[in-house]
Design a binder for these strands. Structure first.
Length: 616
RNA sequence: GCGCCUGUAGCUCAGGGGAUAGAGCAACGGAUUCCUAAUCCGUGUGCCGCAGGUUCGAAUCCUGCCAGGCGCACCA
């Protein structure tokens, strides 16, 4: 509860405040459905809706007998800015009012003729639509003021305040090299982490390392048969990879090796010292490699809780499942029959007594809830594991955990070669490290060619190269499969991170020459009347809702696409509206505008885990 | 066999009930006395997989089919 003067505002949260030199205090408040600005000056309160959408929603409320929120939902953007900035389609009213939509639009336009709002200056009918035209000056000033005041927090909100979201991402099977296939979970998960954090959630990032299971039995068998210490220490990750591939090649002709591997894993689960010793070495050797890549990518986790972390909780889980009476013995194994729910049965314990992936996921989920009391738990894991998660969540539900419905599998498509899928077992894999290094090298070459005078080329190349790889993965809808193509990875033109970074660098260059900006210049926004300027301002205003949309659908691509739009709008502006070579008043307004663009680009790219260099 | 996902321009993909379906790449042409040409502008392209249905209105929702991918008990 916040008190605005004498008016109590329930459920409001102060987002930020700004004390002007004049003594005026500006408060931005967040309500459950909208947010508002309150300006205090001589005890007069003025409440202004944040967006013109909401303003229109309240204006139309009485005229069309619809809830403001419903009106806002129906509002859309006309195909051509010349038609207006926002359109209300009148079809919905046609049935209720028994009139053709065009007649309704005309009538509403008549009702509103001569009227204007704080952000719109006129409304007119065009066919079945009631089109609103923005007051570009008032709107532009408001947008620039807000962005300038919010700065590096522009777009952020408090909608997730007090809530916790646990995000399971990256989660590679170690003892295998970090392949390009691991990139997706890593960057999508990390981006979701940043997005939820921007919305005020407390985020817990967990790297659920695949550091347990039969693959370690396989490695031990391979090492016992063919391994040698010197080679292992010389190049641990590649050597383990070779052993892993060799195991699978040999196992095709000698299936007994698989039994040997299972036996070793069983020994590991029983705590056999020799097995544990092997496991510890293999685990730490490959983890070193993983950590170097996370460092390069700037990714951190709150916890590296691998599957092995839950070992001492597995018997408890098995006991719980038995107590609840949902498990049955079948062919010597312990399973849960899910036929009633249209799902195949799941196995929790093999006939040799060893546990499985799902058993450990069960233990992990329970542990996470007990530890973090999450409001939501996300699993950023490939779409091919959809069934696994349906089963996991169903078993949790059968165990009586009502928080099971807050567990969400965030699936993504497979990354594959033109020729077919990647396979670690067959050695058909691309090393992520190689991809990153090549991208950085290519970026470096382009910088050498385009900007030979740049001071720190290596730093810029690193940012641009890593950005290209990340953006390539984040800009398409995560659910779609992607084909790995070197040409595409190493392409820096068109809809890429470099396009956005380049726009950012251009802005920084202008700002350096101008020597800075001042928030007060927002008053001059009246001067921003060019089509390119109006389009840019409208696009900038969309940023907060894009972040919300990305979180709601768990799709960072929403933000990536949006940033392409921002950069494109900026580039058009750049080519048609000189900043430094314009009249002082216009120059100030334009400087503030491009500074706002800069903030949106930096904040938005930041949510994708991508940096923006000041020069490139 | 059963289940899930995907199918939009030559290629890669946006758009996920609303006005004439959009970008990038590739092709061709143009823009640099001026803030970085990794940019911008212009030219051409579509049975939105197919067939039904719901709706005032469907690329978008529903059903069936086709094609591709991915799953379906001792791997993770």
């Amino acid at each position: 509860m916040v008190f605005a003067g004498r008016i109590p505002l329930p459920d409001a949260i102060i987002i930020w405040h700004f004390l002007h030199q004049s003594g005026t205090l500006t408060l931005y408040l967040s309500f459950p459905r909208f947010w508002a600005k309150i300006i205090w000056s001589n005890y007069k309160e003025e409440v202004v809706m944040h967006t013109y959408k909401e303003e229109i929603g309240s204006i139309l409320q009485s005229l069309v007998e619809l809830e403001p929120a419903r009106v806002v939902e129906l509002l859309e953007t006309p195909p051509d800015p010349g038609m207006g900035d926002l359109a209300f389609p009148c079809y919905v009213l046609a049935q209720r009012w028994k009139q053709p939509p065009a007649a309704i639009a005309a009538r509403l336009a008549r009702d509103l003729s001569g009227k204007r709002g704080r952000f719109w200056e006129k409304a007119e009918a065009r066919g079945p639509y009631l089109n609103f035209h923005l007051d570009a000056a008032a709107f532009g000033r408001e947008v620039l003021e807000q962005i300038s005041a919010a700065g590096e927090r522009y777009g952020w909100s408090e909608s997730g305040r007090g809530k916790t979201v646990v995000i399971d991402y990256s989660s590679p099977n170690i003892a295998k090299p970090f392949g390009i296939g691991h990139l997706r979970s890593t960057v999508i998960g990390h981006s979701l982490y940043l997005i939820f954090q921007a919305l005020g959630y407390r985020c817990i990032g967990i790297n659920h390392l695949g550091d347990w299971g039969t693959q370690f039995g396989k490695l031990i068998v391979a090492y016992e048969h063919w391994g040698n210490e010197a080679e292992l220490l010389a190049d641990p990750v590649n050597y383990l990879f070779e052993l892993y591939v060799r195991f699978h090649r040999s196992a095709e002709e000698e299936p007994a090796l698989e039994d040997e591997a299972r036996a070793w894993f069983k020994r590991l689960e029983e705590g056999d010292p020799q097995a544990v010793d092997y496991w510890t070495r293999f685990r730490s050797l490959s983890l070193e490699n993983y950590e170097s890549i996370y460092d390069l990518l700037g990714i951190k986790f709150e916890y590296y809780h691998g599957e092995s972390h839950y070992n001492d909780r597995l018997t408890g889980v098995i006991r719980l499942v038995r107590e609840k009476g949902i498990a049955v013995e079948s062919e010597g194994a312990l399973i849960v029959d899910l036929e009633k729910y249209g799902l195949p049965p799941v196995m929790l314990q093999k006939k040799d007594g060893a546990t499985l992936y799902l058993t450990r996921d069960l233990a992990a989920a329970i542990y996470r809830y007990e530890t973090f009391h999450f409001d939501r738990a996300l699993y950023v894991v490939g779409a091919e594991q959809k069934l696994h998660f349906q089963q996991l969540f169903k078993v949790l539900e059968l165990l009586g955990f009502d928080w099971a419905r807050n567990c969400v599998h965030v699936p993504f498509g497979l990354i594959h070669f033109k020729e077919g899928r990647m396979s670690t077992r067959e050695g058909k894999i691309i090393f992520l490290e190689e991809v990153l290094q090549k991208a950085i090298k290519m970026a470096r070459e382009i910088i050498e060619e385009k900007n030979p005078g740049l001071a720190d080329k290596d730093a810029a190349a690193r940012i641009v190269g890593l950005g290209a790889v990340r953006f390539g993965d984040l800009s398409n809808d995560r659910i779609k499969d992607v084909e790995f193509d070197w040409d595409k990875v190493l392409d820096f033109s068109g809809e890429t991170a470099a396009y956005i970074q380049y726009a950012h660098a251009r802005i920084c260059s202008i700002l350096r020459k101008a020597g800075g900006v001042k928030a007060e210049w927002a008053i001059g926004a009246t001067a921003l009347q060019a089509e390119e300027e109006k389009a840019l301002i409208k696009t900038l205003a969309l940023f907060p809702e894009k972040i919300e949309a990305a979180a709601e659908s768990y799709r960072p691509s929403t933000i990536a696409r949006y940033l392409i739009d921002v950069a494109r709008d900026f580039n058009r502006f750049y080519h048609n509206c000189p900043v430094l070579n314009s009249d002082p008043a216009l120059q100030q307004a334009r400087l503030l505008l491009i500074d706002a663009v800069r903030l949106v680009l930096v904040n938005g790219m930041g949510l994708l885990g991508i940096e923006s260099p000041e020069e490139m």
